[in-house]
Design a protein around this nucleic acid. Sequence first.
DNA 1: ATGTCGACCTGTCGGC
DNA 2: TGCCGACAGGTCGACA
Length: 283
Amino acid sequence: MPELPEVETVRRGLTPAMTGAVIARADVNRPDLRWPFPPGMADRLTGQHVLGLRRRSKYILADLSSGETLLIHLGMSGRMLVSGDPLGQFAHEHPAAEKHDHVVLHMDNGARITFNDPRRFGAMDLMTTDGAEQHKLLAVLGPEPLGNDFHEGHLIDAFRNKNTPVKSALLDQRIVAGLGNIYVCEALYRAQISPARKAGRIAKPRVAALVPIIRDVLTEAIEAGGSSLRDFRQADGELGYFQHRFDVYGREGEPCRTPDCGASISRIVQSGRSSFYCRSCQS
DNA sequence: ATGTCGACCTGTCGGC
DNA sequence: TGCCGACAGGTCGACA
């Protein structure tokens, strides 16, 4: 589920349950996800106050009172389920444990945070909060697409002489950090740029136009609560479940939404990933 | 340096 | 019903 808007949605869902609360107990049910967990992870989490939850690209960062920061990545299939009743408004039962519940945080406010990840491409690590941005996984990241460092000049520079398809370039987290397969497809459709076009062969005004388009797509998706299951329990007890309306992603063979276009959406495979686009509108 | 590709995992779905 | 291949929201690291 996780590109930037989904991760931001998860972060916002976790915040009322975690920020200001204490991790009373941490169950670590296996030694690793994509990589081994850091030594003594359960002990290093237990008893810590959660000072705040930040997001960098697709990573959630939980700052702890110990001076350490917990890094969380959801990989392809990672989910964070909040259960219990942190706000004291309703009496929710904790659900039964499920297969692939790898880490469970029991908060002192009664909330329970369950990390479930069938494919185990996700990750967790601990680092000192001071200098967290130097963590190996964070140090290589490019600018936040919604931040001030992502601007026309940056993208034009990054694309200059690039021989790789623009689809791959936008998935490159060193160029801009947070896009994934869905939102790259959607942004390229709005920009009317073919995913197969070489990044270095797009006219500068068209590259520049991508910047506000990317910001818009991501902002709209965040406002919509992400494009996938919102599988955390809301403060009002609702199980959020939002389905975003895509223009192209997953719409192979369906009609292009551009008025009077009449073409149908195509799917091609680029570096092993599906790209959806309109051959008529995008070049 | 740059670009491509396999690898890491489990689950689901469609076709035969 | 069962088996098999294709595919899935990511990205690291090996290799040309």
